Amino acid sequence: MRPLKLVAVSAGLSRPSSTRLLADRLAEAARRRLAEERAVEVSVVELRDLATDIANNLVTGFPAAALREAIERVTEADGVIAVTPIFTASYSGLFKSFFDVIDNTALVAKPVLIAATGGTARHSLALEHALRPMFVYLRALVVPTAVYAASEDWGTGGNSHDDGLAARIARAAGELADLMARRPAVTDTVVPFEQQLAALRP
């Protein structure tokens, strides 16, 4: 049985980026949960590095090699973590453009964890009014817990009224891992063409 493939998509624009940091923490938490039962391959797609290719693809309809490879990784993944900074109360244009160039059937029934970063907690509802509807439209299986990290969340442990960022990461990653683990297993077995033809004969 092949390893599960987990891909984190980060739309952070700066280096270092809190968006990438959140993507990494979510991916590592999900990997640890899944590794108890299955081998896991984790990779990250940095949209910052693909910005020009994404813009060109929107105009020409043809992806460059690097963008094509990133699209294939997301399309073939068993689970996706999608993280964007929040600009003007919604996802970034780069984030939306990347998912615009992916075939709109590529995420059907695929487990997706949505997350976002921002300067203030006031933008946390963007996860529910912008990101979740987009992935529901694409017919992905969006995990119940969405993770938002405001500037003040980094380094806090939470209190009786707030789970804290670490707890939210653990809960969301666990939900994603559970969905990925329940997906039908895909093996790399190839059925010879002659055998396929024989199965069609009456």
Rank of each mutant, 00 (worst) to 15 (best):
G118M: 07
I86G: 08
L200Q: 04
V83W: 03
S160P: 04
L176M: 07
I86W: 10
V143F: 09
T117V: 14
T84Q: 09
V59Q: 13
A64S: 07
G158T: 01
L113H: 08
T75L: 01
A66G: 01
L13T: 08
P144V: 01
R201A: 02
R122G: 03
A70F: 05
R68F: 11
D103F: 00
H129L: 05
T88L: 13
A149D: 05
A66V: 00
S97D: 05
L58D: 11
L67P: 09
M1H: 08
T189H: 02
L138A: 08
L4V: 01
S151Q: 12
R15P: 09
H161Q: 14
E37R: 14
A70I: 04
A64N: 06
R122W: 03
R48C: 00
A70Q: 08
E28A: 07
V112R: 08
H123N: 14
A11Y: 03
L176F: 05
V191K: 12
V112W: 06
E37G: 02
A172L: 06
L113F: 02
L22D: 14
A55P: 10
F62D: 15
I102E: 12
D24W: 03
A29M: 05
T75H: 06
L94M: 07
S90D: 02
F62R: 15
P192L: 02
P144G: 05
V142P: 14
P133W: 00
T117G: 11
D100N: 07
A198F: 06
R168G: 10
L165T: 07
M1G: 11
A30H: 09
A115S: 11
T52F: 04
P3F: 03
G12K: 01
H129S: 09
A181C: 03
D153C: 14
L13M: 12
F99V: 06
N56M: 11
G164Q: 10
P63C: 01
A170M: 02
A27H: 00
T19D: 15
R68G: 15
P16R: 06
Q195P: 02
S124M: 15
G119W: 03
G157Q: 08
T60V: 04
V7D: 09
A27V: 00
R182Q: 07
P144R: 15
Q196F: 04
